[in-house]
Design a protein around this nucleic acid. Structure first.
Length: 258
DNA sequence: ATGGCAGAACATTTCTGA
């Protein structure tokens, strides 16, 4: 089974790119972030014609997450307990891997810049709520796959110029500790466990020729329960997507399970 | 320090993103 995560920066503006990607890579499940639309304007029918059922947690203009799946999904939930701001950044469901029940979670973590503003504190608070949610699930014996746009650069190796990001909401120690806390719950940074190389990015800014200079960031992740790691066949960043006409600033991250 | 680009909507300008 192939699972893919992709911040598309507007599902409607990116429809042609997404269709092309689906036809070529045919993931079983795609987790989308930043769909930037309400459910009423989501292109359900386009994806249905490609063989996918869409599950959408939408919002006007900003944020929004969705899961496209070839098979019907069960136990879907669009609410992160305790989040009072209620931006559309969370969607969870249950799937089966190797006949084991697994909670699959799609997240779009707040960016948090500029630091030490209301936006930054919202990010910290959102991550704390997510940690509480994960801790509870894991304590109760649930297997987890959590994927999406974490807006966190885990290590120096994951950013083209670490010294420039020390006081950025994506790289501040305080934020990176939240990522580490997730790992410490018993999760694995799947991409990094399979690939130790530098310059492995999932995002390149639209400005300053970032793509051409390979000035990227690795901020889209898949964390999975330790117990699932031996079910993983392959994990891959689909980098060439960023070179398309009218691309998203993020590219898909794929994982194949046995 | 600013602005580089892109998308959506309050739309020929403003906001948000990372």
């Amino acid at each position: 089974m192939k699972i893919s995560t992709w911040n598309v920066n507007s599902v409607r503006a990116r429809l042609d790119n997404i269709i092309l990607y689906i036809k070529k890579n045919s993931p079983d499940i795609i987790l989308l972030q930043e769909i930037k639309t309400q459910e009423e304007n989501f292109p359900y029918k386009t994806f249905e014609s490609l063989g996918y059922i869409s599950y959408v947690n939408g919002q006007k203009s900003y944020n929004g997450v969705a899961i496209l799946s070839k098979k019907k999904l069960s136990e879907t939930n669009a609410i992160l307990p305790g989040d009072k701001i209620k931006q559309a950044r969370f969607f969870s469901t249950k799937i089966k891997i190797d006949n084991k029940k697994v909670e699959l979670i799609n997240i779009y973590v707040p960016n948090g810049n500029p630091v030490d503003t209301e936006k930054y504190f919202y990010k910290i608070n959102w991550l704390n709520l997510l940690l509480k949610y994960l801790e509870n699930k894991i304590k109760n014996g649930n297997l987890i796959i959590i994927t999406g746009d974490f807006n966190i650069i885990p290590e120096d190796i994951d950013v083209h110029a670490p010294e420039k990001y020390l006081n950025d909401a994506l790289f501040r120690i305080e934020i990176r500790k939240k990522f580490r806390e997730m790992i410490n719950l018993g999760l694995v940074d799947l991409f990094r466990s399979f690939n130790k190389k530098e310059d492995q990015y999932t995002f390149w800014d639209y400005t300053q020729g970032s793509w051409q200079k390979n000035n990227g960031l690795r901020i889209d992740h898949m964390l999975i329960s330790n117990l699932l790691i031996n079910k993983v066949r392959k994990v891959e960043i689909i980098k060439n997507i960023r070179g398309q006409v009218k691309p998203s600033d993020h590219v898909p991250l794929e994982c194949e399970f046995n």
